[in-house]
Each structure stands twice: as C-alpha cells, then as structure tokens.
Design a protein around this nucleic acid. Structure first.
Lengths: 205, 205
DNA sequence: ATTCAAATACAACTTAAGTCATATATGGTA
DNA sequence: TACCATATATGACTTAAGTTGTATTTGAAT
C-alpha cells in the first residue's frame, strides 16, 4: 500500500508519514516536495494508491494539476491537503475529480481517518466548510471567461489598464469592460476587492 | 527544558514535537494553535524556555506579537517559524528581538539544529535568504507611519478612499496624501502594487 | 528659544478607473 | 436557416484615484 506526500514542508511530511505508517499497517509513504517530483513518483511507482498533494507546492500551476495527474494516472487517487479552507476551492477540488480535501488545520485524527476512508475507496470532503458556501451564495465558484482571467491576472500584478491593454493588444476601453464584468461576477465594486475575492476563491495564486 | 509550538497545523506540530523530544533529551514540548493560546502558556508555564511561533497563526496581529510577548515574558525566547521566506520579514523578525527565524521549507536537520542553537543561548537566521535583501535594496524594510498603516490596511481590504476617510475621520484629500506617501515609500505607482508590496514585506497579513 | 525634519491635514487639479450603450463574431438550438 | 445567448471589442461619459502645493503640529536637535 504505497502513498505519496507532496508538500514543501519537511516536518509536516515527517508528522504525516510517521502517523500514517504507524496507524495503517502495511503502508509505505513516499515523499516529495514539488509538483515535478510528484509526477516523477507517479510515473515510476506503478502501484501507488494515493497521492496527498499540497496545492501550494512549488511548480504547481494550481488546481489544473489534479486534472493532469488524474488523466495520466487514473488509478492513483488524489487528495488535496491545504492550509486554505475556502469553500470555493474545496468545491473546485471536488469538481476536478479529487478523492478528498483535507484542511491542514484539521485534528490529526480527522486527517488519518480521511486518508483511511479514501484508501478504502470512498471520499472525504469537509462538508461543514463546504455548506457555508452553498448557503452564502448559490454560485460561490465564479466562472470567468478566458479573457477575463487574462485581465484579472494582469490586474492582480498591479498593472494599469493601459499596460494590460497593450500586453493583450486590445483597447483600454475593452479592458475596462472586462473589469466591470469581473466585478459583477465576483460581486465587488473595485479592483482591490476583486483581487481579494479572486485570491479567496483560488482563481489566482 | 520546556518548549512551546504555536501553529495551527496539527501534523506540523506533531512532526516537530516528536523530532525535538527525540533529539533533545529532557525536552518537553507543549502545543497550541493560536496566539491567544500561546500567551496563556507563556503566562502559566513559568519555566518555558523557547516559543516557536508561526506568525500566521489565527488571532496574531502580525509581527507586533513578538514585541508584546518579549515585553511581558522577557525570559522566554521567541523563534518564528514561517512558510513565508521574504527577506524583509526575516529582517523585521530580527528587529523585533526574536532569537531566530526558521523557514518551514528548511531541511529537518536545519530545523532541529536551529532549535538547539537557540536553546544554547545563540540565534539562528538564514543569512543566505537575508543577504538577498541587503543586496537588492538598501532599505527593503519600509517604515510607514502609524497613520499610513491605518490607511494601508483599509486600502488592502478594498475600501474606497471615501470609506477610509469616514472611518478615520479625516478628509478624502488627506487619505490621498497618505496613499501617495505610501507609494513613494514602497516605490510603487498604484494601490494594487502597494498592497502586493506590503504583503511581501509583511506589513499587512 | 528657535530651528528643522517629519507627521498629519486639506483642497485644487490631472489622470486613471469604472459605467454604459452599442456592435460584431461565435456556437449552440429550435 | 433563423434565433439567441455569450464572449469579445470599442468609445463617450462619470466618478474615483493619484499629484501637487500649502499649512499646522509635534518632538528632537541646536
């Protein structure tokens, strides 16, 4: 029963590895610290059952990594471990096909149990955190068009509308329209709020 | 030899606690998960030698916590453990009087050794990361006035200048002046860049 | 006591941000 | 095909952001 932990914090890996190997007999825990290493392990270790991924690990392009990994190695389950507990992100992780989402701040028992549940073929998502989202807003997971995402990312870097327009080869007016649309989608009223909301929802890093 | 770990990630605490208690004989490691808990332990456990703090723990108002803790309990050493490795933050932690700064992504051996060095009465700061700062800019640690910080925090929440002015009971014009001064201090040209720079430097959460 | 630098405050002015009406291309659907 | 929703694009217009000159206060240095 091989597992993989991908996290850039050595002591977190140490704690989780020790706990899993002790609690789950016959388990072997591999470690890596970035997305590149995770893919290498997945390629090499054919009998890998489960990969526990910190979505903030270096070299990881966000949630799309889950999709990529599952597509290439469909028999390896993916479970995200994250310090971010935003319901929108949890929903997104769920949508991408992961088997679970474990907040790092969970009690240790919860973490072990969640791993066991997933190894047993089921799933684990913290529904208490998730429900907050569905109650609060019907579509907490905002969907932005590709162009809107381009603009949003540039905006988050602190670029002025003129710069964004030049880089994307569109007019300043068009940039502004996209920004207004982004505001509506995220239900905010200025670019600072938009960037904060987008960060919360995991739309941008 | 009592130590305290303040971190909201249970498994990180587990790994660090186990490692320290194993490597450092006669050590006893206490755990808490927020700033409030840390202060309670410091008050109660009079023979506490060292507190390892994650500066992002809940209820922590940033770096000022170090100063507060050292003032109240001057015989308890403070060492910051953080996922953020920004040189400016390291410098700031140093300035506040902490005995060390340990990046969470350090090799486990580095972390243990650093703890032992500090327990032995010395200090540990990752100079390789720190030097990058002094080479890059002479005053990487920007100093803002209290009023500028008030404005900056409000700004980072996405408030408009009018809102900020009302909340601080000053005119919109004054708010704008403070913002221009902040821009100059952080060497940026708009509020988005200012907020990004301030986050990088640990001026705001 | 006075000088000076720094912090705080205000307002007129310029520039950029944000809104709105409008237009075209694209892709799915009756 | 014709229809409709959506993504994209533009420019005129309004509002907010950012700049600059100026004034008052405070504390430290002379």
């Amino acid at each position: 029963m091989k597992l993989l932990i991908a996290d850039d914090h050595g002591l977190f890996r140490l704690g989780l590895k020790a706990a899993i190997e002790q609690k789950i007999e016959g388990s072997e825990v591999l470690e890596c610290e970035d997305a590149k290493g995770a893919l290498e392990f997945m390629e090499r270790e054919k009998d890998l059952k489960l990969a526990l991924l910190d979505i903030n690990i270096p070299g990881n392009e966000g949630l799309s990594f889950i999709y990529t990994a599952l597509e290439r190695y469909p028999n390896i389950k993916i479970c995200v471990i994250s310090g971010n507990e935003d319901p929108a992100i949890i929903s997104a992780v769920m949508e991408k096909g992961a088997s679970g989402f474990i907040p790092k701040s969970s009690a240790n028992e919860v973490i072990f149990s969640a791993v066991q549940i997933i190894l047993a073929g089921s799933q684990y998502f913290p529904m208490d955190l998730l429900n907050k989202a569905t109650v609060k807003t019907e579509k907490s997971l905002s969907r932005l068009t590709p162009r809107q995402l381009d603009v949003l990312k540039s905006m988050a870097e602190g670029q002025a509308n003129k710069q964004i327009a030049d880089n994307l080869n569109i007019s300043v007016g068009t940039v502004k329209t996209h920004i207004t649309a982004i505001f509506e989608e995220l239900t905010v009223t200025n670019r600072t709020q938009a960037i904060n909301a987008a960060r919360d929802k995991g739309l941008i890093l």
